[in-house]
Design a protein around this nucleic acid. Structure first.
Lengths: 303, 303
DNA sequence: CCAAAATGATCGATTTTATCGATTAAAATA
DNA sequence: TATTTTAATCGATAAAATCGATCATTTTGG
């Protein structure tokens, strides 16, 4: 039988890879530097292989094999972590820590309504929330830094299991005195010819809004206002109110009052495509998938 | 930080699931029964969950959660084992134990030529060989009971990475006085109308032979001789020599003398499709994939 | 239905292992 | 060059894993 590394040794290895520094890695593992150092030496002895390149002075430099082992250690540790997670999930649904990632075009508008409902339904849930772009939180999800993410479909989040919950339609927003405000329903083709205000690149809502107007991703909006791409839906609404152009706002943002105090007129958009779908995504094979699914009604109620 | 189970505890769990008996599982782990018992109790305490149903008397009965955890333990243990394997692979290529699975239509014909070459090229390789149908060895591969399998493509071995090495063409075999023996090359369509002798179900060669004649898998051969399906290529050759019909034999079997001492005529088959491809398959992400690939030249030389 | 065998849990003793705090030697930095 | 930073090392101590023996049930055979 081959001797296996201990989970603790793998944690040491991962922490060292992340911090590049024995002392800080030891802190992250809540052990002393000598313990971490000894653990890594023991791992090298166990594997009969060099993980660190000690010729490189006192800096932490991994050998090629060491880098490979870091990845394998991460995989193994995640598989190991899934075991107590499965046991916890079987004992009680949605208790204990849950690291949730949210995208910036959902978080500020939905969380204020979602959180109280969550606290009431699952009082023992300790929710850690991190807000970032879809790409980033997806990467963190797959890395094991997050357990669950709340995002808007369609999006590119390969490698994660996605679960659609509720539709969130877009509304066209323009000043009250804008010619388009005379229409009750705005046809997408009409929108495509306007000065269209968008979020900056990286926001999935930007692509979804373009798609809702029948434009391809990357296709420049006709207004040519790319340099003024907004960084949040709040600034987007303010820019539209200032007469810079027309924009699309998701209903949850409007419900949360993103247009409050402005002179913006809101009009539904014709056709079926002018919407995004709010949903969750999690790691495939996570033992807690069933728990996560049980969050859907709460999200649907909040959206 | 969540407390993780120790690799030893996972080994105990797997051994118990496999043997269904504390004493035998303890033997398999090379520990005493009390150690294994205590280890499992510690695991249940760690996870705060019941793994075994102790209401079921002295028999070993797993709870539903327990069964789930067995699968997760297997996954985690395989990920853990990959770490020392990667270290070993980096140190020396193709040394130490290698558990090889072979299908019955390859093993008896190719191994006698392949093994000496292997021993010469990799003297420190300790090869354990297991012969069984494609389905079975594929399942054992994915279970971690085998490291590498030698099989014939195309086949259904989902979940494994396959690596084609060399073509192995089929020849039509019939008695010297059979009318078909007058042809130099046998067209596949002609074969499809003969009394076609096949291996019994489960052999991938059966399906490949049918496909070579333009018949679909499951489609009964015209002779209606299914009840006499052969269990090995040797009996298949003997049956053809006895005048029961026509059959297809792969070249490696002919080269190994499967038709020696018979009156069988061997004819190539027209077209390109009348062949199988010999190759390897391994678990995705195995650290030894590069080593396994280095076996290809030896296999090609032996085929 | 009862006695004998088998089985898994438990206990105390022993060995092994992990961790800490302090120290040292080597590098990086100023 | 002097000083600080950094990783390795050492000795002591606490924690754990494992063993052998034993106990309490359950299963099996007559």
């Amino acid at each position: 039988m081959i001797a296996l590394p201990s989970p603790q040794q793998l944690r040491f290895l991962l922490a060292l890879a992340e911090h590049g520094h024995f002392g800080r890695a030891a802190d992250a593992c809540a052990v002393t530097q000598s313990t971490l150092s000894a653990g890594l030496l023991a791992l090298e002895r166990l594997l009969d292989a060099r993980i660190l390149d000690r010729a490189a002075g006192k800096r932490v430099v991994f050998t090629p094999l060491g880098l490979d082992l870091v990845g394998r250690a991460r995989t193994a540790l995640m598989a190991l972590t899934a075991i107590p997670e499965a046991a916890n999930a079987a004992r009680a649904t949605l208790t204990g820590p849950l690291r949730l990632g949210v995208i910036p075009t959902i978080g500020p508008f939905l969380l204020p309504r979602l959180m109280p409902a969550l606290r009431e339904a699952f009082p023992d849930l300790r929710l850690f929330i991190r807000e970032d772009l879809t790409d980033r939180i997806t990467a963190q999800l797959l890395d094991g830094k997050l357990d669950l993410i709340l995002l808007a479909l369609p999006c590119t989040c390969a490698g994660a299991d996605t679960f659609a919950v509720t539709r969130d339609p877009f509304f066209a927003a323009m000043p009250q005195d804008h010619p388009l405000a005379l229409l009750d329903i705005i046809p997408p083709a009409t929108l495509a010819m306007q000065k269209l205000l968008l979020l900056e690149d990286g926001h999935c809502l930007r692509d979804q809004a373009l798609s809702a107007c029948g434009l391809a991703r990357g296709e420049s909006p006709p207004g040519g206002l790319d340099d003024f791409a907004a960084t949040s839906l709040h600034t987007l609404a303010q820019m539209a109110a200032g007469g810079l152009g027309v924009t699309l706002l998701p209903r949850i943002a409007i419900d949360a009052g993103v247009t409050a105090g402005t002179n913006l007129a809101l009009r539904p958009i014709g056709g079926e495509g002018a919407s995004r779908t709010l949903g969750f995504a999690w790691r495939p094979n996570t033992p807690r998938a069933a728990e996560y699914r049980s969050l859907a009604p709460l999200l649907a109620a909040a959206g």
